[in-house]
């Protein structure tokens, strides 16, 4: 069964008819040809498909496209400003926070969303005092980024990159 969907992806509005079964991830990849979000597990277990939906980080593999009518989707491809990488992306490049690159767009989107959550004062599982301001140390970054698996093991460099981006 098909349904109509209008959404903005990386700043561009698209209207398309989608199978109601199509996920946000598959709509982006197979219908719009935007393969920046990756399919690592398709079940919300790896984070490679992370995108920003109306500014918040989400897993695109577990969202139905049809439920996202009117949404603003940002992928890692859409984080660039002209030729300029997003500061988080630039920090990943500078710290070699990637190897095979397959988890990387999801890590980047997750980090961007995570930093906004920190700015909004959201605590994490390793925040000892739930009511205190968040101090974004390495342990906080690791916990908050744990929904993004990296099998190449680039974690140390990713954390260093995010620390730098957070300071900027």
């Amino acid at each position: 069964m098909e349904a109509d969907l209008t959404w903005r992806v990386d700043g561009v509005e698209h209207t398309l008819a989608v199978d109601t079964r199509t996920t946000v991830l598959d709509a982006l990849r197979d219908r719009l040809g935007n393969t920046s979000p990756k399919k690592g597990c398709d079940h919300g277990q790896c984070g490679a498909c992370t995108v920003l939906v109306d500014g918040r980080r989400q897993l695109s593999c577990l969202g139905l496209a049809v439920a996202h009518d009117g949404s603003e989707i940002t992928t890692a491809a859409g984080l660039v400003d002209g030729d300029e990488l997003h500061p988080v992306q630039q920090a990943f490049v500078d710290h070699d926070g990637l190897q095979c690159g397959y988890c990387t767009p999801g890590q980047v989107c997750s980090a961007v969303g995570m930093l906004d959550e920190v700015k909004a004062g959201h605590p994490s599982a390793v925040s000892d005092d739930l009511e205190a301001d968040v101090e974004l140390d390495e342990d906080e970054i690791r916990e908050r980024m744990s929904g993004n698996l990296c099998r190449c093991g680039a974690y140390s460099n990713i954390v260093a990159a995010i620390e730098e981006a957070a300071r900027a």
Partner: peptide, 15 residues
């Protein structure tokens, strides 16, 4: 709060 934050991941908890 602690129980919620111990569950899933940031992305999943947003949804």
């Amino acid at each position: 709060s602690h129980a919620l934050l111990a569950g899933a991941s940031g992305q999943l908890r947003n949804v």
